[in-house]
Every structure is written in C-alpha cells, then in structure tokens.
C-alpha cells in the first residue's frame, strides 16, 4: 500500500477582499510546487470570521487590498486572526505578506494626517503614508539573510504609497537595484523576521521567483522534519525572471552603470542585518 500522502496547506487570508494585485499567482505557485513534489496541496480560505483550521496551515498568504476592503479586514484581523496567527508563527508556520498585508502585520500605519492605525505587531516594521506613489518594475539584490537562494535577485512590480521602515528585529530581504522598495530612501526591500516575509513586490511575486517560493515551502515543512524538496524544472519561471533583468539592464540610463556595479558588489558582501 502506498504511504499516506503528506499534506501541505496554504491559508489565504481574506481571499475575497485582499486580492488586488493578482495575488492568486502566489497561491497557485505554492500549491503547484507542493503538488509537483507529491504533496496533497490544499488551500484554506480564511475570510472574515474564519479561524477554523489555522493551526494546520503551513504557509499563510496575506495580500493587498483596496482602501475600502482593507478597512473591512482591519477589525477582523485584530478580533479573530491575531492570536491564532501568532501561535502558528511560533510553531514554525510561514507567512508571506504583500503590500497591504505587509503593512497590517507591522506596528502601525500612520496616515498623512498623522493618525495611527495599529497593526498586529507580528513584525518589527512601521509604515507611514507618503505623498508620491511608487509604481513600477522592481529588481532586488538578495541580502545574505537568505543564503543559498539562486539566483540572487528577486523581480516584481510595486504600487504603493506607504513608506515602511524596519526596526532592529527585522532584516531586509535585499536592496533595490531598480525601483523604490520599502520606503524609497534606505534602499531596502521587504523584511524577514522569524517565519514572516513581508514585501511590496507583486507581479505576482512567486511565479517568477521560484527560488523564494521553495524557500517558503521548505521553511514551513521544516517543523515537520521534512525539508528536503526535490528539484523541479524551473526553466520557464527563470527565463521570465531573466527577461525582466535583461530589460532593466537595457532601460537603465547609460550614465548609471558605475553606480549599479557598486550596488551589486555591495549586496554580495556579508552584511549585518540593518
């Protein structure tokens, strides 16, 4: 008799409200990549009021929403999701939070008028509203916080006006080679803290960054003592990734190459988390 198939569960926080930037691509990527490794991959929808099954989730996904939807999510997050989510992370589950989800997991979001909306403080980041909206392609050179990831870049698209700043507990995922990232001023993009990955990259993020997708799956499975993932053929994903890098190279102004070289060599050196 065949051994019982192992399950892999993706928990999608507010799939009907926080799904603005093609976030389904991240869900599909996690599910398929587990399925291709013979896991019984399942998706658990965690809409408003739902908490059932959160303890079985391996990877949570929390996407971005429009302002109207984000306001509806906010109360439910504090009331229903915060305690089970904290418990899950403590037990080794992984969270990927993009854009609005990223902001809501931090300490607070401060509006242009100075009003503060507290987040759930799962990660040591704070966000302030900015005037200019950051919109466009992003290329990130991955920091040493994530060793072993190949290629050493992440590609995606950003569209946000929030400026997110990392506290001492959180480390950036990397430095922006193209685009604005966390706040447009310190060159960082994303955050890593315990099992939580926060980022402004959509596009969707995971389909063109299969190395990051596998890192999330592997970290989540580690608590089950099951972190060996068989290799997959990622040529389609990586050639889409490569196309973005090539195009950016062509588009960057001719006067910038020196600066680019400096940046990429800086990113390759070991660095303390900032």
């Amino acid at each position: 008799m065949a051994p019982k198939q192992k399950t892999f569960t993706v928990g999608w926080l507010y799939p009907d409200l926080m799904n603005i930037y093609g976030d389904r691509g991240n869900i599909l990527t996690l599910l398929k990549r587990a399925e291709w490794r013979d896991y019984d991959a399942r998706m658990l929808e965690l809409g408003r009021g739902a908490t059932k099954g959160m303890e079985d989730v391996d990877v949570f996904f929390f996407g971005g929403g429009q302002d109207r939807e984000q306001a509806l999510v906010y109360e439910d997050l504090l009331e229903h999701k915060q305690p089970p989510l904290e418990r899950a992370v403590r037990s080794g589950a992984v969270v990927l939070a993009v854009c609005g989800g990223y902001q809501l997991l931090g300490h607070y979001y401060q509006t242009a008028e100075g009003e503060r909306f507290p987040g759930i403080g799962l990660i040591d980041v704070r966000t302030e509203a900015g005037k200019k909206r950051f919109i466009g392609d992003v290329i990130v050179d991955i920091d040493t916080e994530m060793p072993g990831l190949v290629p050493r870049t992440l590609v995606g698209f950003e569209n946000h006006s929030g400026r997110t700043f990392l506290g001492p507990e959180a480390a950036p995922m990397g430095r922006v080679r193209l685009g604005f990232g966390n706040n447009g001023s310190d060159g960082t993009e994303g955050c890593l803290q315990d099992g939580v990955v926060g980022t402004y990259l959509h596009g969707s993020l995971l389909p063109k960054n299969p190395h990051l997708a596998d890192r999330l799956i592997r970290s989540a499975l580690r608590r089950r003592g099951d972190d060996e993932l068989s290799p997959l053929d990622d040529s389609a994903e990586l050639s889409a990734h490569e196309r973005i890098l090539e195009r950016a190279q062509r588009r960057l102004p001719a006067r910038a190459p020196q600066e680019r070289e400096l940046r990429s060599s800086a990113a390759a050196e070991p660095r303390e988390p900032s």
């Binding site: 799904n19 930037y21 093609g22 976030d23 389904r24 691509g25 599909l28 919109i135 466009g136 392609d137 698209f157 569209n159 959509h202 596009g203 969707s204 389909p207």
Partner: peptide, 9 residues
C-alpha cells in the same frame, strides 16, 4: 498597463 500581475486573475 505596465503591471501584468492581473494575468493571474
């Protein structure tokens, strides 16, 4: 639209 993430929808 310069953002193509919508193809996942």
């Amino acid at each position: 639209g310069t953002d193509v993430s919508w193809i996942w929808d």
